[in-house]
Amino acid sequence: MDRSVALRACVIFMIAMGIAAAVGVSAQADIAEALFVISGSLGVIMLFFALTAPTYTPLPLRSRRRD
């Protein structure tokens, strides 16, 4: 998983987590609180993978002129 994929997955997951949190707050159930904690920890793991993923930089190469 590279950095852009991890960040994209994290953003999508944060949106889904926000919707689940809104439903959990309105339901006021214990299972909703547990799901919110689990989804929060998964979000932190995704951010960790996004920040620790290596970035690929192009290598400078010399090009020869053909005459």
Rank of each mutant, 00 (worst) to 15 (best):
A22T: 14
A9W: 06
R66N: 03
D30N: 09
R66I: 12
A27V: 08
M17F: 03
S26K: 11
I12N: 07
M1F: 10
T52G: 12
V37M: 14
R66H: 05
L61I: 04
L61T: 05
G40Q: 12
G24Q: 04
P54I: 04
E33F: 11
L7N: 10
S39I: 09
V23Q: 07
R3Y: 02
P58V: 06
P60D: 07
G43H: 11
I38M: 14
M1Q: 08
G24A: 14
V44K: 05
S4F: 06
A22C: 12
F49G: 10
L35W: 12
D2M: 02
V11L: 10
R64C: 00
A27N: 11
I31E: 10
L35C: 15
I45C: 06
P60H: 03
D2K: 05
R66C: 02
L61W: 01
S4N: 08
C10E: 10
G43K: 09
T57M: 06
R64L: 01
M17N: 06
A6E: 03
A32K: 05
A22R: 09
I19L: 15
L47F: 06
V23F: 12
E33D: 08
A16P: 00
R3I: 07
D30P: 01
S41Y: 11
R64Y: 00
R65I: 11
I45V: 14
L35M: 14
I31P: 00
V11E: 12
M1S: 14
A9D: 10
M17K: 03
F48W: 08
D30R: 09
F49E: 12
D67Q: 03
R62P: 04
T57H: 13
L47R: 00
I38Q: 07
Y56C: 00
P60S: 05
C10H: 13
